[in-house]
Simulated assay, not measured.
Amino acid sequence: MDLAQSREIMVESQVRTADVTDTRILRAMRHLPRERFAPAQKRAIAYADLEIEVGDGRFLMRPRDLAKLIQAIGPQPGERGLEIAGATGYGAAVLAACCREVISQEPDGDLSFAAHAALESAGVVNVKTVSTAVVDGWKDEAPYDVILLNGSAEFVPDAWLKQLAPGGRLGVILRQGPVGAARIYTRSEDTIAFRIAFDAFPPLAPGLAKPRGFSF
């Protein structure tokens, strides 16, 4: 299998056709070895148009959804980012090509360790991996200019919004049953607003299903 050719096909047939025009994202996806972020038995499908399971109920987002979400939050070269529920770190690696530094937060310690190894193998030096509960974000190094969720959620924890810097953007795909839409939240000095960016329905990230009695 020609992996470089597979990466190029992924970008041309899945990402560019989804109106992703940010050259930094396209360049990163052309060069990052996505197969190194997948389990050995899944590497043959590393560039397929689907979510890749990397652990028990844990996935990497479809390339199209990840690229569109990063483009929608608009990371800038001097900014700091946080990827929530980062799994093996591929999303953080793509985001890190667009900003100064990224923290990849992952609740599963084994996956966080795998992310550290994959990022090191891929030569990504501006991503730090940490492990804590998804709903908590990572307040130790907040605030962040951009935050994204790898996966989807049925609600948005207050902690994530509080960890945004003024002018910061949070990208999260909100699910209501089988339907999902990417919301881009923007924080001003004292208010938070959001817009809908695109439709998508990746699997739920851990701990982000609505509790019983939750009022949306």
Rank of each mutant, 00 (worst) to 15 (best):
S121R: 15
I173V: 14
Q105M: 12
G151N: 01
P211M: 14
V134G: 02
H116V: 02
Y185V: 03
T186E: 13
P157W: 09
L148V: 14
P77Y: 01
F155V: 05
L164T: 05
A48P: 05
K68L: 11
L66M: 15
A117Y: 13
A118E: 04
P157R: 07
R34K: 09
V124T: 07
P157T: 11
E141K: 14
A205E: 00
G91C: 01
I9L: 14
R64D: 15
G91H: 05
L149K: 06
L69K: 02
P211Y: 10
R16G: 12
W138G: 00
V94K: 09
D65Q: 06
W160S: 00
F201H: 15
D190K: 06
S104H: 00
G167I: 00
D56S: 10
G207R: 10
A85K: 04
A200P: 04
D110I: 12
A44Q: 15
E101K: 07
A159G: 09
F198L: 11
G137H: 08
A87N: 01
F113V: 10
D199H: 15
G91E: 04
F155Q: 01
Q14N: 05
V20N: 06
P33N: 11
K128G: 01
I184C: 12
A122P: 12
Y90N: 11
G109H: 15
R64K: 14
A93Q: 01
R183Y: 14
L3Y: 08
L119H: 04
L3R: 13
L60C: 07
A115C: 02
S188F: 11
G180K: 04
K139W: 10
L95H: 03
D199E: 12
E12R: 15
L32C: 08
S152G: 07
S131G: 05
L170G: 03
V15K: 01
G74P: 03
V102N: 00
A205K: 04
F59N: 04
V130Q: 05
R27V: 12
E189D: 10
E154L: 09
R16N: 08
Y47L: 11
A92T: 03
E83A: 09
R187W: 08
V11A: 11
A205S: 11
R195S: 15
W138D: 02
Q14T: 02
I70D: 03
R187T: 05
V94W: 06
I192C: 06
E106C: 00
I196V: 14
Q14R: 03
E8Y: 02
L60G: 07
G91V: 09
V54H: 09
G81R: 03
V102S: 08
A28E: 04
M1D: 13
D49H: 10
R195Q: 08
V135R: 13
T132I: 09
M29P: 10
A46T: 06
I147Q: 03
D199I: 14
V94T: 03
